[in-house]
Design a protein around this nucleic acid. Structure first.
Length: 811
DNA sequence: TGGCCTATTTTTTTT
DNA sequence: AAATAGGCCA
């Protein structure tokens, strides 16, 4: 009889086997896409177990529950009966922190604020800290605080620190107050889970060494996406027993916006001089053509160590690059392609994935699938747990679990309507703050709160009484509690009353779905079920995790959600400028490189077939737009592609030597391939702060310079017109000063602003003809956004001031 | 006070 | 298109 373990090892490559068998001492596995990373992790865990390591000494940290579940299942198959703890960093921390809550000034039943809870708390904190909010949004403050936390900075650490921007300065003022309010609410946000854990490990050496001893073997998946806090946790658990094994691929780092820091790789080398590095470069997933394309793309990243991707797979279909006339055609074309492949028996639905940069793009695809009765799974745009009615019910549960959860109380004190208005809540809040109690406590004394009339106080008292009645039941099985709650609060009635005919969004059905989730939870936890546990699970489970590879459905998902998955056929849609790369990431070359990695991740999901597509027209925020193909497309080897133009030979796709965008005439450079230097932040275009890189950016910059205008023409800044030179190729005759323009424009055109309509083709003396994309405002302020045929870029005009001629009525 | 209407702004990505 | 904020009326 052959040893099954030997057989398993025999199925691995040399590099993989090395990684699997390297069980003691620090280990860095650099694993390219499709290199059998999961396989290595699971076999490595199995190897540890075979060596007699007790399963409780192993800890595997992942980024998504989905990844954890899959690994767990695969380990269970290799070594049955020895369950190993695998889960997200956040879940691990949440569970550990229950035990040590008191060290942090929390109680074990602490709440985990989700994003919107945190935002609500933050808004209150911003008001209390009396900072000027004229130039910063709460989101910006929130993300700055989040960055502090991810970098392990506490409010007191910021005092003597030079802050990088005024935004950070403001955030630093709000931060302590926000933290205080969380503490008072016995709550943590997502970042706190990591931050608190890291601080515990740092500040309590005994605790740290105890946990270090307990978790002898720590593994981290997707290491390139860890932030400093996460690194500190992994490090803190792996000092005495430095058997830390991390797996990652810097080329797939796509979460820097969440604080991920690719420098953690360097940090690792520093903290573990004896680190062993193993590279997995053989790709077992994709065809050579797909790999070549992906590699060609990622080569354009400067901040990168080169890696060779290779495969034994035979040559197969070329990567397709398809141009559709519109987003609608794109969606329908893809849906048709899927339908016919399935019909002919070549493929099943679950072989396909359609990926997009932003989830707003799922809509059109979804409709196309639905109209063809193609079963699909969608990484939910609107998450289940984010829906109003669900959040309302959960807020009640949160409040029952943690009476100090002020955010929850605020949410539901008047849902359903009880006659307790904002004014009353404000007064209660002020009273609570003054007496240093939480909101529910203040409600109990509503009669004493200044300014609250007796009648309203009575209403508040009734609410509190109802809360107390429910509170008695809060230890009951979740299903019972939930039904009781829906009854007692009259929430079910409330939602039944406002039920629309829209079958699409049915609140009552959602409530039922929540009840079944509770039933399921009860069944899963017959002994140890608790409200607290349920809420924790809800907080840490995103809908992406419910993805189920079993059923035969097409997957629709964002590129981020696609990470870690693979599909025989992958479509990536809307590979267009301002979408991929996203318009928000054009500022820095770092962000641009991250966008490139994102496309790289998407492309390398494909096993057999990959199609990238662009549309010419697309609805953007409900308004029709002419869009340009992503300049990433021009970084890909054209001869690798099968280029398909479905319609409208507008020749905006890259074809041999044929690049027919209008700005060509101002651009002497022979070949776009040479232009990646433009991506560098030190390029003149970038330095001048003039928008996107080549090619459109150059043109736009020149046009704007020539016009002496930025986009908003309602306020002309003559000083800007004095920017000299660099427009010589257009010739002096086309140059006008802002003053000229102003004079011209003040005349307007005589056409009443209200007469313009979306879709009209109009002519502008400077830009030529273009189509009206959007209209807003009224009267003298009525503004049009026009995309000109000359540059394909949107420009805004105040109609009353702009001399436009109507060339063509709207279609 | 509260509900409703309108106007404006927004939207990257997720634990 | 959808969500949010602000304004107005019952």
């Amino acid at each position: 009889m052959t040893d099954p373990w030997k057989a398993q090892l025999a199925g691995l490559t040399e590099a993989q086997r090395q990684a699997v068998e390297h069980t003691s001492g620090p280990l860095l596995i650099l694993a390219g896409p499709g290199s059998g990373k999961t396989r290595v992790i699971t076999h490595r865990v199995a190897c540890l177990l075979r060596q007699g390591v007790p399963s409780r000494a192993i800890l595997a940290l992942t980024f998504t529950n989905k990844a954890a579940q899959e690994m767990q299942a695969r380990v269970a198959r290799l070594v049955p009966g020895q369950p190993v703890w695998m889960g997200t960093f956040h879940r691990f921390c949440a569970q550990r922190l229950r035990h040590y809550a008191s060290l942090l000034g929390l109680q074990p039943n602490y709440s985990i604020y989700d994003t919107s809870d945190a935002k609500a708390a933050l808004k209150v904190a911003i008001e209390q800290s009396r900072v000027s909010t004229s130039h910063v949004t709460p989101e910006q403050i929130g993300s700055a605080i989040s960055r502090f936390k991810n970098r392990l900075l506490l409010p007191e650490d910021l005092a003597d620190r030079r802050l990088e921007s005024s935004r950070e300065t403001i955030a630093a003022r709000v931060y302590p107050i926000y933290r205080q309010s969380l503490l008072q609410a016995n709550a943590v946000d997502f970042d706190d889970l990591l931050l608190h854990m890291a601080c515990l490990l740092r500040d309590y050496p005994d605790l740290r060494s105890e946990l270090d001893a307990r978790y002898q073997y720590v593994m981290v998946d997707e290491y390139q996406d860890t932030n400093l806090a996460q690194y500190a946790i992994a490090r803190g658990l792996s000092i005495d027993s430095p058997n830390l094994a991390v797996v990652g691929d810097p080329d797939q780092s796509i979460y820097s916006w969440r604080g991920a820091d690719r420098r953690n790789v360097l940090q690792l080398e520093q903290d573990y001089p004896e680190l062993t590095t193993i590279r997995l470069e053989e790709n077992f997933r994709s065809t050579p053509a797909i790999l070549r394309a992906a590699d060609a793309l990622i080569r354009h990243n400067r901040q990168r160590k080169h890696k060779t991707l290779w495969t034994h797979r035979p040559e197969a279909a070329a990567v397709r690059l398809v141009q559709y006339a519109s987003d609608l055609e794109e969606a329908e074309g893809i849906a048709d392609a899927i339908a016919s492949a399935v019909q002919s028996g070549q493929r099943r639905y679950s072989d396909f994935a359609v990926c997009y940069r932003i989830s707003a793009l799922s809509r059109t695809l979804e409709m196309a699938m639905r109209s063809r009765v193609i079963p699909y799974y969608i990484a939910r745009g609107v998450e289940f747990y984010q829906r109003k009615e669900i959040k309302d019910v959960l807020a009640y549960l949160h409040l029952l679990n943690n009476p100090q959860h002020d955010v929850a109380l605020r949410r539901i004190i008047n849902v359903p309507v009880r006659g307790i208005g904002a004014k009353t809540v404000d007064r209660l809040q002020a009273y609570a703050q003054e007496h240093g109690v939480y909101l529910l406590a203040a409600c109990r004394q509503a009669g004493l709160v200044p300014g609250i009339p007796p009648r309203t106080a009575g209403l508040v008292a009734r609410f509190v009484a109802m809360y107390d009645r429910l509170s008695i039941k809060s230890a009951a099985p979740l299903e019972d509690l939930l039904r009781e709650l829906l009854d007692e609060t009259k929430l079910r009635e409330y939602y039944e009353a406002q039920q629309d005919e829209d079958a699409d969004n049915n609140p009552v059905a959602n409530l039922d779905e929540l009840v079944s989730a509770a039933v399921e939870f009860d069944a899963r936890h017959p002994q140890d079920g608790s409200l607290e546990k349920f809420l924790e699970e809800v907080a840490l489970v995103s809908d992406t995790d419910e993805w189920d590879g079993e059923s035969d459905r097409v997957s629709l998902m964002t590129l981020h959600a696609a990470k870690g998955l693979e599909f025989p056929c992958v479509f990536i849609v809307a590979v267009e400028q301002d979408t991929l790369p996203h318009s928000r990431s054009r500022e820095s070359s770092e962000e641009l490189e991250e966008e490139r990695r994102l496309l790289f991740v998407g492309m390398t999901r494909a096993i057999d077939q990959l199609q990238l597509s662009v549309a010419r027209r697309r609805l953007v925020r409900g308004a029709p737009r002419i869009v340009a193909p992503s300049h990433f497309l021009f970084e890909l080897p054209r001869d690798e592609f099968e280029v398909i133009e479905t319609q409208d030979p507008a020749r905006f796709m890259p074809r041999s030597g044929d690049w027919d965008l209008p700005d060509r005439q101002w651009n002497d450079e022979p070949d776009f391939i040479q232009h990646d230097a433009m991506d560098e932040s030190d390029s003149p275009v970038q330095r001048a702060g003039l928008g996107s890189p080549w090619p459109l950016g150059i043109h736009a910059a020149r046009v704007r310079q020539a016009a002496g205008l930025e986009e908003d023409q309602s306020e002309l800044h003559p000083s800007k017109s004095t920017r000299p030179g660099r427009i010589s190729r257009r010739g002096p005759s086309t140059m006008k000063t802002a003053a000229d323009l102003l004079r011209e424009q003040q005349q307007g055109s005589g056409v009443p602003p209200e007469a313009y309509q979306v879709g009209m083709v109009v002519s502008h003396p400077r830009y030529g003809s273009g189509r009206i994309q959007t209209l807003s405002g009224a009267g003298l302020k009525r503004t049009a956004e026009i995309v000109f045929f000359s540059d394909n870029l949107p420009h805004r005009f105040v109609l009353a001031l702009t001399p436009l001629t109507i060339e063509e009525q709207a279609e």
